[in-house]
Simulated assay, not measured.
Amino acid sequence: MRVSFVKMHGLGNDFIVLDARENALPQFSQATIRALADRREGIGCDQFIILEPHESATCRMRIFNCDGTQVEACGNAARAVGLLLGKPAQIVTSGGTIETRPDAAGISVDMGRPRLEWEAIPLAYPMDTLTMPVGWEELEQPCAVNVGNPHVIFFVEDNDAIRLDTLGPLIEQDELFPDKINVNVATIEDRDTIRMRVWERGAGLTRACGTGACATAVAAMRRNLTDRDVTVHLPGGPLSIRWKEDGRIIMSGPATEAFRGSFDPADFA
């Protein structure tokens, strides 16, 4: 059988999206997902997304990184799926239920409330998540935030100067993080502007990360480095992040459909 897909991206963070809401799909192994995600011999993506029916929401979204591992949430993918659905929607993920709706910036996503407790990140042992007493070479005293996905955030003078391609995997796989970790390096430009880069667990360097932008904004706000409504500039472009007084995070930004096609899973087994 051939499987239809939609190739989409949010600020260059790209996805293969499969819609299984009406017709069931075959199971995809980690090896098959890795082959499909390969940019030379497959379709190419950072994340592989499957939409499934849900009894009380618009749909369920399952998210796999390009290495085939399943993850809890993806903010950019949520915007892409929101665009695909074309109307306000409730989307169930392993990290919780999120709500999307079209807006002037493209798609806004209610990402829910961040988790700040050490055991919710999770960390291997108790410590303050606002200013963690740990470091890796020049990266020290990060903040940890879970926004469906776990993130550790380092505030630095120039995030472009950080060797994230080498420090990212080192920190991602540290024993302090039993579920591994996404690594963000951020520079505060002013009270409403942040520049950041991200190393995503299971995906590496990506051009944008929605949960990373949310986590970084929350970390900056917790440290009183910014106001509660900021623009986060990533290599792929900007996202607007607002941390409401009720604790919920609203992320707004563009999403794009690149092309549609189909494939035979047997070609990638």
Rank of each mutant, 00 (worst) to 15 (best):
L170E: 09
I241A: 11
V183F: 09
M127V: 06
E172G: 10
A258V: 15
K87F: 10
F48Q: 02
T129F: 14
S56N: 10
A219Q: 12
D190C: 01
A220K: 09
C74R: 02
G148L: 13
D192C: 05
Q70I: 09
P178M: 05
L83Y: 03
P150Q: 06
E72K: 04
E140P: 00
R248M: 08
P114D: 04
K7V: 06
A161Q: 14
E257D: 01
A266S: 14
D160Y: 07
R207E: 08
I107V: 12
R62V: 01
E189W: 00
L205D: 03
S252H: 04
T166Q: 13
E117R: 15
I250C: 06
T93P: 03
V145M: 12
D179M: 11
W118M: 09
G148Y: 13
F263A: 08
G236K: 12
H151C: 07
Q173G: 03
A266K: 15
I181E: 05
D38T: 11
T231F: 05
I249E: 09
L85E: 05
R207L: 15
I16A: 04
A80N: 08
E52G: 00
S56F: 11
R21V: 02
N13C: 02
E117L: 14
E55H: 08
T187F: 04
V183C: 04
D246M: 10
G168V: 01
T69S: 15
F177V: 04
K180E: 08
R201S: 09
R163F: 03
A24K: 13
D103R: 00
N224T: 13
I171R: 03
D46G: 04
W243K: 02
I16L: 15
G212E: 14
S94W: 02
D46H: 09
E138H: 03
E41H: 15
A144L: 09
E138W: 00
I194T: 11
G210C: 04
A104Y: 02
